[in-house]
Design a protein around this nucleic acid. Structure first.
Ligand SMILES: Nc1ncnc2c1ncn2[C@@H]1O[C@H](COP(=O)(O)OP(=O)(O)OP(=O)(O)O)[C@@H](O)[C@H]1O
Ligand SMILES: [Mg+2]
Length: 362
DNA sequence: GGGGGAAGGATTCC
DNA sequence: TCATGGAATCCTTCCCCC
């Protein structure tokens, strides 16, 4: 029995922007930006993604639209149509499933495929990769990048190595050669803060990281440190497994400008709550915990939450609780509010009996 | 001492 | 100067209770 695995990580190229370009051929080769936020037309919002042409100007996800415009006055800004991208995503995921024995969707535009059983040699890897890319291009008119490795993390890092439309295959005997020179930030889980913390200790490349012991890294970074260590030594071994049920659901909206108009804020809270109820009822969920999220004009963020004794999907219950939470915060609060959100968690399926748990209580 | 849960914050990801 | 929106996971603190 051979335990060596072959994992693919498939990641669509500039996904939202590519869909918009596919829909409108005038946009081909143009610097296209998909924007999100309170008023994309008036540059109030940020870049959700940028086409590769736009990236030449330093435009990338997360930067304010006004900055993107200043970098390139020719950009075409499209407001995001997430539900449409979701449909496209579903089509792509169906294609990917066909080519794998185990499948794990990670996000709207990424998935892991365990294809170990379908691979005998290097050529069969290339054949399978090309087949997948072909079918996505033919059926959906979109390109993707694929990383191949002996585990999920290496596959993922590999898929980002050559983009767009790249293929990167990392054999087990090339792991060190591949990982060593990469910056620590390449590792999934190492973000801005962790990068800085490591830099302070002179750790910038993955090869620096593996000089530390696993326990060093755990005492430095907690549980995350252990995961980061395993990835860095190339021995991360988590399974490709289907996505579980969602754990929370919520909506957040920013105001065009910060406000202390309580009425306006409460209206927004009700609107967001209504959307949540609509969605959980459609998806047949119930919740037990309700939270509000507030970002003030100084950009500090607070969350307030409370939990019920029983699950519910009732609008009135949600409204009462989140408005109460808000009133408590705004009792003696001077700062204006930039952004307000409502979220529910502790979810269960409404109809389906909770067989597994209820068995224990017979 | 610690299990177990609630709350709140921080960080990361896409 | 600008600074989204959806979600997951982890950490710390507090509390109830054995
Ligand atoms: N910071 C962000 N805010 C909102 N949406 C984001 C953000 N980052 C990514 N997304 C959305 O998720 C999609 C997939 O993200 P991903 O990181 O794979 O980038 P991408 O646009 O597909 O480009 P790439 O070719 O680098 O993969 C994007 O198209 C995008 O719009
Ligand atoms: Mg992508």
């Amino acid at each position: 029995m051979n335990s060596k695995r072959v994992i693919f990580h498939v990641d669509m190229d500039a996904f939202y922007a590519s869909v918009e370009i596919r829909e409108n051929s005038d946009l081909e080769n143009k610097p296209v930006v998909v924007g999100v936020g309170p008023n994309v037309e008036k540059f109030k919002g940020v870049v959700s993604t940028a086409s590769y042409k736009a990236r030449e100007y330093g435009i990338k996800a997360g930067i304010p639209l006004i900055q993107a415009y200043n970098k390139c006055k020719d950009i075409v800004i499209m407001p995001a149509r997430i539900s449409y991208y979701k449909e496209v995503s579903n089509n792509i995921m169906e294609i990917l499933k066909k080519y794998s024995d185990k499948f794990q969707q990670i996000s709207i535009d990424e998935a892991y495929l365990d294809v170990s059983k379908r691979i005998e040699d290097y050529d069969s890897i290339e054949n399978l990769v090309n087949k997948i890319k072909e079918e996505i291009l033919n059926n959906e008119g979109l390109t993707c990048s694929i990383g191949v490795g002996p585990n999920k993390s290496i596959a993922k890092i590999a898929s980002g190595f050559k983009k767009p439309s790249g293929v990167t295959i990392i054999n087990s005997d090339k792991i060190r050669k591949f990982l060593d020179p990469l910056p620590v930030k390449t590792i999934p889980g190492v973000g801005k803060k962790t990068k800085k913390l490591l830099a302070k200790r002179g750790i910038e490349k993955i090869k620096d990281l593996i000089k530390l012991s696993k326990s060093d890294l755990i005492s430095l970074l907690g549980k995350a440190g252990g995961k980061i260590y395993d990835i860095a030594i190339g021995r991360e071994s988590s399974e490709v497994k289907p996505r579980g049920p969602r754990k929370s659901l919520g909506f957040i909206r920013s105001f065009e400008s910060s406000t202390d108009d309580i009425k306006k804020i409460k209206e927004k809270i009700k609107e967001l709550s209504k959307s949540i109820i609509k969605k959980i009822q459609a998806d047949d969920f119930q919740f037990r915990t309700m939270s509000i999220i507030i970002r003030f004009d100084d950009f500090s963020v607070i969350t307030r939450s409370n939990s019920l004794t029983h699950h519910t999907n009732d609008y009135k219950v949600l409204i009462k609780n989140v408005i109460d939470l808000f009133d408590k915060v705004y009792d003696n609060e001077k700062r204006k509010i930039k952004r307000i959100g409502v979220r529910v968690s502790n979810l269960t399926k409404s109809s389906l009996k909770q067989e597994i748990l209820s068995k224990y209580f017979e």
